Amino acid sequence: MPCLNPIADPVDAQHHRAIAAAIRHLVENWQDQPPLEDLAAVAGISPFHFQRLFTRWAGISPKRFVQFLTLDNAKRLLAENHSVLDVALDVGLSGPSRLHDLFVACEAMTPGEYKALGGGLTIHWGLHPTPFGPSLVATTDRGICWLSFAEDPDGRDALNELREAWPAARLVEDADATRPAAARAFRWDGAESEPLRLLIKGTNFQIKVWEALMRIPSGVVVSYEDVARAIGRPTAMRAVGAAIGRNPVCVLIPCHRVIQKSGVIHNYRYGVPRKRALLAWEQGRAETEEAA
C-alpha cells in the first residue's frame, strides 16, 4: 500500500482541522447552542481568532451557522425553492456566482470507455485536509473523476473505493497534481472564469441524475421527487435515490442538496452530520453573497 500523506500547507491543514473539529461539535450539539468559548476550545484556538477564522471560511458567524442546521431551516428552503430545479432546467442558469453549472462542467465516458473500466487511463490522486474532514481527490487529463471523504485516518477506505470504481486504470499518488482541484472544491467563491472539468462514468440514467444535481444552485435544497420529475421520471424516486448514492464526485456533483420532502436530512454516503454541515456552509456563503 502506498503511503498516504494528507499534508499540504501546514497552516491551511491546521486551520482545516480546527474548523472540522468545531463543525463536528456544532452538528452534534446544535440544540444546546454551544457558546463561542466552547467552540474555540474544541478548535484549540482563542475565541477571537476562532471567530475570525470561522467567519472567513463560512461567510457567517458560528451562531448563524447553527441556525442553518435545523429542521425548520430545511423545511423553509424546500418551501421557498420548490420549483428551482424545474426553472434551472427550463431556462438555464444565468447568475454570476451561486450557479453551480457555471462552476462545474462534466463529460461522460463513451460506452466503450465505460466497458473498459478505465483501461489505458492514468489517474492521479491525493488526500487533502478540508473543513469537513480528509478528502481523496482523483484527476485525469480530462477532468476530476473522483472526490470522496475518507473515514480512515490514512484514507485507505477512500483509496480502496477509487480502485473499485476504476479497476483497470493506472493509479498514481500525486497530491501536488490534485491539490488545485481540492482547493477549488472547498474554497469556491465563483471568481474562477474556467469551470472545473469532471470525467464521470455511469449508466445513462445515473449520468442524467448527476447532471440534474449540478443544476441545483448552491444554498438551495430540493427533494428526491423534484429530481425525479426534472429528469422526466416522476415515479422513479427509488432509482433516483440509488443513483444519487452512487455519485463518484461528491460536493462538485452536489448530492447533499437533495433531502426528503418532509425536510428531514438523511441517507448521505458520508454521514448525515457531514451533509448538514455542507448545507449550512453553502447557505452561509449564499447569504453573504446576497448581502454583498
Rank of each mutant, 00 (worst) to 15 (best):
D101T: 14
L162V: 09
D154S: 14
L39Y: 09
G95Q: 15
A236L: 12
L39K: 01
Q206I: 04
P273I: 12
A79M: 10
D226C: 11
V251P: 11
N5S: 00
H15L: 06
S97E: 03
S223F: 08
K75N: 03
D176A: 04
A138Q: 13
P2T: 11
L71A: 11
R238W: 10
A20V: 12
I60A: 00
V137W: 05
Q51C: 09
V249N: 02
I123E: 12
C250K: 05
A22Q: 00
A13L: 10
L78P: 05
A228W: 11
P273Y: 14
L199G: 08
A18G: 01
N5K: 14
E113N: 02
H49G: 02
A183F: 07
A277Y: 01
P195E: 03
D38P: 01
I200R: 00
A292S: 12
V221I: 09
Q260W: 13
I19E: 04
F48E: 15
A242K: 13
L26F: 05
L121I: 15
P234W: 09
C145I: 03
G245C: 05
S148I: 11
R233F: 09
P134F: 06
C250A: 05
W125R: 07
F132D: 01
A168V: 14
I7N: 10
N81W: 08
A280L: 09
K261P: 09
L77S: 05
R52D: 02
P254H: 07
D38M: 04
P195M: 14
R98L: 13
I19N: 01
